[in-house]
């Protein structure tokens, strides 16, 4: 392939990936409800979005679950990665296998396993069931990045800390944690992304007491067109792009130090 045709191919793929989203963004400013043609610029769909309490609430719920799940997954996943890296214990192989299963299982299978366990444990479907299942499906991704980072640094640092009298906890907090921070941050970002993107698991473990975005949006777009969703998509895209760029800066800064 020539250079030009290679760039042409890359462009075509990116157009495929971005054109549908671009159309949503453009239509979010279009006066015409159905977006068949351009009828002039308007902010009214954004106004409607802000007035749509159910949709806004679902959005905040999704954001809350995403932030909390990513944070818990980052903390628990880091501890898991550290345990798997540093200690020998019974069931260590099994723990690795379980993480692998979570990563490889299709979402729909995971969703059902969560639903079944919540029924058996008597956990009401709602906020807690959503949070627990989101933490769980994010965990393997945090463990992988953090574990790789731990594997990459000098094990003598930990020994040095121990020789200088630091206990396990102290060594973890003063040596391991700062060194693996870039990995933890990217694990957090990955988890947040996965949580925000999820539809399948959430559809199964959500309850009427805590409606989140995919469920709300699903009922809105199943039948017809709803321009508020266009506005929401545009907002999510802008906010997430800014967030990712900030995170990139943060990670790059961490690397330079």
């Amino acid at each position: 392939m020539t250079r030009t045709s290679r760039w042409f191919f890359l462009m075509a793929v990116f157009i495929y990936l971005y054109a549908p989203i671009a159309i949503l963004v453009v239509n979010s400013f279009n006066s015409s409800k159905y977006g068949h043609s351009w009828k002039g610029f308007t902010w009214k769909w954004y106004d409607k979005l802000l007035d749509n309490n159910a949709l806004m609430q679902a959005f905040w719920h999704s954001l809350t679950v995403g932030l909390l799940a990513a944070s818990f997954a980052a903390v628990i996943g880091t501890l898991m990665a550290f345990s798997l890296y540093r200690y020998r214990f019974a069931l260590k192989k099994a723990a690795g296998g379980m993480l692998f299963i979570v990563m490889m299982s299709p979402d729909i299978v995971l969703a059902i396993t969560f639903l079944v366990i919540f029924m058996v444990l008597g956990i009401q479907l709602g906020f807690w069931s959503l949070l627990i299942s989101h933490i769980t499906f994010c965990l393997p991704f945090v463990v992988i990045v953090v574990y790789a980072r731990l594997n990459g640094f000098d094990g003598n640092l930990l020994e040095a800390a121990k020789d200088l009298g630091a206990g396990e906890a102290r060594a973890f907090f003063t040596v391991v944690l700062p060194l693996s921070m870039p990995a933890i941050v990217s694990g957090w970002l990955l988890s947040f992304t996965l949580s925000l993107d999820d539809v399948i698991v959430s559809s199964f473990v959500t309850g009427p007491s805590y409606e989140i975005l995919p469920i709300r949006v699903f009922s809105m777009v199943k039948i017809g067109v709803s321009p508020e969703v266009n506005a929401l998509a545009a907002l999510m895209l802008v906010v997430s792009t800014i967030l990712v760029l900030i995170a990139q800066l943060f990670i790059r800064k961490g690397k330079n130090q």
Binding site: L17, I21, S62, D197, V229, L232
Partner: peptide, 8 residues
């Protein structure tokens, strides 16, 4: 694009 929910 993953940052916009896949349903959207």
């Amino acid at each position: 694009p993953f940052w916009t929910n896949s349903l959207i």
